[in-house]
């Protein structure tokens, strides 16, 4: 067969209908996964945990999306898009899982019944019902701070997801298995950038260090488990964030060291804040943008 372009080959490899541009080889991420809640697990806890992981992804995706049309190099703009899309995909699965086990908070009082759970949860919860950490909710800052935050957040999330693949909840395990590949790439991409900024020019070094110094205090509550997490850890469903500490600090220390950046003092542990709905006004502002249109037309279908 003569194939003039690589796309002809793709086309024939994917059914020959010229449809590869709509995406090829996609697998339904939860196909064949048993969605019943395993015995001995409190659905309310499970849903709450899904919100924690889902909100982290949703809010970080929103922060990264702010870079669309703002990056200097088109290659980087495309990379931001991919990372944000991966996280958005994780968020949708996790919020849908929370909804499917009945954890919808006050969102269902406001959202029209026809709106899917993932959207009811994303668009019709108030800030105090969100369960993301300040690490993802803080404003992105410049490119240096953005990459340091992405490095920290993806290192942490990868450490959690790696362990979560063994969760007793088959849905969480499946979401984690898919997410590990994505997060490995995000962490790798962020690490490569932190290396280049830290060990690039004097200005980039200064900016990267400022980014590190701005991000580090946000790590104060990321290793602290909530009561929900403790119960789910005992039930074999969730990952204790404290169990990821040594891996996370080792990775971050290694990357920063190689990037010739100074590792600040690790902040002292504080009780969970974002995970129990305590947020700074940054999240309120982010959600006002995210939710404004949907709330203006609560009865609409999109």
């Amino acid at each position: 067969m003569h194939e003039e372009t690589v796309y002809d080959a793709l086309d024939s490899a994917h059914g020959g209908e010229g449809q590869w541009a709509f995406g090829t080889g996609f697998d339904e991420p939860l196909a064949g996964v048993d969605t019943t809640v395993p015995d001995g697990i409190d659905p309310a806890d499970l849903g709450e945990y899904c919100l924690m992981l889902g909100d982290d992804a949703l809010v970080l995706a929103q922060r990264l999306t702010e870079w669309m049309t703002a990056a200097r190099e088109l290659e980087e703009e495309v990379a931001f898009g991919n990372t944000a899309l991966d996280l958005l995909g994780q968020a949708r699965l996790l919020l849908a899982r929370a909804g499917s086990v009945g954890v919808l908070g006050r969102s269902r009082e406001r959202a029209t019944p026809s709106i899917p759970d993932e959207d009811a949860l994303a668009y019709f919860r108030d800030p105090d019902e969100f369960r993301c950490t300040a690490l993802v909710a803080a404003p992105g800052g410049d490119f240096g701070q953005t990459m340091v935050r992405l490095l920290a957040a993806s290192t942490l999330r990868l450490a959690v997801f790696t362990r979560l693949r063994d969760s007793r909840d088959p849905v969480l395990a499946a979401i984690a298995a898919k997410g590990v590949h994505e997060l490995t790439y995000h962490r790798d991409h962020a690490a490569r950038w932190v290396l280049r900024l830290g060990d690039g020019t004097p200005e980039s070094h200064r900016r990267a260090q400022a980014g590190v110094d701005a991000v580090w205090p946000l790590l104060a509550d990321v290793f602290s488990a909530t009561d929900v997490e403790r119960r789910l850890v005992a039930a074999g469903v969730a990952v204790d964030p404290a169990a990821t500490r040594s891996e996370v600090t080792a990775v971050l220390t290694q990357v920063l060291g190689q990037a010739t950046l100074r590792v600040p003092e690790w902040p002292a542990d504080v009780p969970p804040r974002g995970r129990v709905g305590e947020h700074s006004p940054d999240l309120t502002a982010l959600l006002a943008t995210l939710q404004g249109l949907a709330r203006q037309h609560p009865a609409a279908t999109w």
Binding site: W20, E75, A79
Partner: peptide, 19 residues
């Protein structure tokens, strides 16, 4: 800027639809 980043960018740009 270099080979490593070129592979990353190529992955993001030219294979984002599993090509």
């Amino acid at each position: 800027p270099d080979e490593e980043m070129a592979v990353h960018a190529a992955r993001d740009l030219y294979t984002r639809r599993n090509e």
